[in-house]
Simulated assay, not measured.
Amino acid sequence: MPNSSIPWIVEELFLFSIRELDTAQDGYRWTGPQRRRLPTWPSNWVVIAAIFGDPFIADVDEPAVPIYFARHGAGCWRADRVAPTAATFLKVLARFESVLLGAFDSDVWDEDGLLRPGFLRAVEDAVTELLPPADSASFMTALT
């Protein structure tokens, strides 16, 4: 279990420290007790955070280190960019947390078990100031 996490809409988003990064790649880059390399995982991808096993990925071959999000269990890895740089990703997480914990006090679900439209609008407004439109849309998809 990672040492660092932040509240997310359902459970915690686990952020991996430098010491945890190697182990955090298990199940993505590595498989089994011998930690065999999975050929379907790009060598330039490093999992830096995860929610429900869905990874946030740093592309370490790119100078700006963009951050991507992928869903596990889809049969193949398809990652969508959620931030143009790692620094921007951290700013987006801070904005998200200010909406989740500040404006909504974690009360983001309606009586039907759906995310409140007002919450989604507030998050979108907050992250749109920091992200290009396509990245903002991908970040919002990562929430649902």
Rank of each mutant, 00 (worst) to 15 (best):
V65P: 00
E97D: 06
T31Y: 11
L93V: 15
R95L: 05
R29Y: 05
I48Y: 01
E62M: 08
A83N: 06
H72C: 07
N44D: 05
H72V: 09
P63T: 07
A64I: 02
A79Y: 08
C76T: 12
V99N: 07
L90M: 05
F96M: 08
P63K: 05
I48W: 01
D54K: 06
P63L: 11
G73C: 09
L101T: 13
W41K: 13
P33E: 13
D59Y: 02
V65T: 07
I67C: 01
N44C: 11
I57K: 01
R37P: 11
A58Y: 00
E62I: 01
S43C: 10
R36E: 11
F96C: 04
E62W: 06
P55M: 04
L101C: 10
L90Q: 00
A49Q: 01
F56E: 00
I51M: 09
S43F: 06
F56V: 01
R36Q: 13
P42C: 06
G73Y: 06
I48S: 01
N44K: 09
A58P: 01
F52E: 11
D61F: 08
W77L: 14
A58V: 02
W41L: 07
D54L: 02
C76A: 11
F52P: 03
P39K: 09
W41R: 10
I51G: 04
I67T: 02
F56P: 00
R36A: 09
T88D: 03
A74Y: 05
N44H: 15
T85D: 06
G75H: 04
L90V: 00
T40A: 13
Y68V: 05
F69D: 03
L90W: 00
F52M: 14
A49F: 00
F56Y: 10
R35D: 13
R36G: 10
L101K: 12
G32Y: 09
S98C: 13
T85W: 03
L100T: 10
W45L: 15
E97K: 07
V99E: 03
W45V: 11
H72S: 10
D80Q: 08
